[in-house]
Simulated scan of single mutants.
Amino acid sequence: MILSAGDAAPDFDLPASGGGRIALDALRGHKVVLYFYPKDDTSGCTLEAQGFNALLPEFEAAEGRIVGMSPDPVKSHDKFCGKYGLAFPLASDEEKGVLGAYGVWVEKSMYGRKYMGVERTTVLIDREGRVARVWPKVKVPGHAEEVLAALRALP
Rank of each mutant, 00 (worst) to 15 (best):
K108A: 05
A61N: 11
I22N: 08
I66A: 11
K39Y: 03
F12N: 02
L56E: 11
L14I: 01
S76G: 05
V118P: 04
L148S: 05
E48P: 00
A62E: 09
P73E: 02
E63L: 10
T121M: 07
D25Y: 04
V131D: 01
V123Q: 06
A91M: 07
A91C: 09
V123K: 00
D25T: 11
E119P: 00
D93M: 11
D40P: 03
L86A: 04
A9C: 03
P155R: 13
D7P: 08
A9R: 02
K83D: 12
P38E: 05
H77W: 15
R65D: 04
G117A: 05
M110T: 11
V147M: 02
V98I: 11
A149Q: 13
S92F: 09
A91P: 01
S109K: 10
A62Y: 10
S43E: 08
Y111A: 07
V67W: 04
A87V: 06
L47I: 14
L124F: 10
A91E: 09
A26L: 05
A144F: 06
P141T: 04
G100N: 09
S43C: 07
A49I: 01
E60R: 14
A62I: 11
S109R: 13
D7K: 06
M116R: 12
L154G: 03
M116G: 01
V140E: 07
D93V: 08
V138E: 00
E63T: 07
S4Q: 15
L3E: 07
L86F: 14
T122N: 11
G68D: 05
D40A: 13
C45G: 15
A149H: 14
F80P: 10
E128Y: 12
D93G: 07
A132Q: 02
K79A: 15
P57S: 15
G51L: 05
R133C: 12
L148P: 04
E107L: 06
G82N: 12
V67S: 02
I66T: 10
K139P: 03
Y37Q: 06
L56A: 12
G44V: 06
E145M: 12
A61G: 09
K137R: 09
L27I: 04
P57H: 15
G44K: 07
A54G: 00
S70Y: 14
A150N: 00
K75N: 05
E95L: 07
D13A: 09
V131T: 03
A26Q: 12
V33S: 03
F12H: 08
L99C: 05
G68Y: 08
E58G: 12
T42D: 11
H30Q: 09
